[in-house]
Structure formats: C-alpha cells, structure tokens
C-alpha cells in the first residue's frame, strides 16, 4: 500500500518537475495506474521513459508497497 504523495515524492527525486497522477486499479492501493508528465522524458523512447519511472520507484516496488504498475510517460507539450 502506498499513498499518491509518497509515490510522487519518489518520482520527483528523479524528475523534480514531474506532474504525477495515481489511480488505484484494484482498491488495494498497490495495483496502480501512474501517469508521469516531465520534461525529463524529452528525446527518450517509450522503453527508456518507463525505465526511468521504474528506477525512481525501485524501492517501493522491491519492498512490496507497489505490486503492479500501469505506466504512462509524457512530456508536457504532448500532455
């Protein structure tokens, strides 16, 4: 179980300007749909964008607070 603002803090450690939207897919707050909008994604392909998010959330994923993630990663202009 992780709260949106804790998750956002993890993402912002790596992407300070990130706008993060978290929605709960199953009601247990550990199967999450996460949308991250950041200039840090500029020029990066989809795989690398998602790798950046996984790196930012490595700790809560390893300790089980996050079980499953559905990711969307965009740069602001695309938003």
């Amino acid at each position: 179980m992780i709260t949106p603002d804790v998750l956002t803090a993890y993402v912002r450690q790596m992407m300070p300007d990130a706008a993060v939207t978290v929605s709960d897919r199953t009601g247990t707050m550990d199967h999450l749909k996460v949308v991250v909008v950041s200039t840090a994604f500029a020029g990066k392909n989809l795989l690398d964008r998602h790798r950046m998010i996984y790196q930012a959330l490595d700790v809560p994923m390893k300790d089980g607070r996050i079980h499953a993630l559905e990711l969307t990663a965009q740069t602001p202009p695309e938003d």
């Binding site: 989809l46 998602h50 499953a68 993630l69």
Partner: peptide, 24 residues
C-alpha cells in the same frame, strides 16, 4: 533493465509490456 513481468520480445527485440505495445 526492466524489473517487471511480463516481458515481450518480437523478432529478437525487447518491447517491454502492453504499456509499450498499446501506444505502438
């Protein structure tokens, strides 16, 4: 360098999962 499952390979190339395949 991808922590989750499933992992998809097409024609020998890695494509992540449906988060990558759906937008494609």
């Amino acid at each position: 360098n991808w922590p989750t499952l499933p992992k998809v390979f097409i024609d020998g190339q890695f494509y992540g999962d449906t988060d990558i395949l759906d937008p494609m």
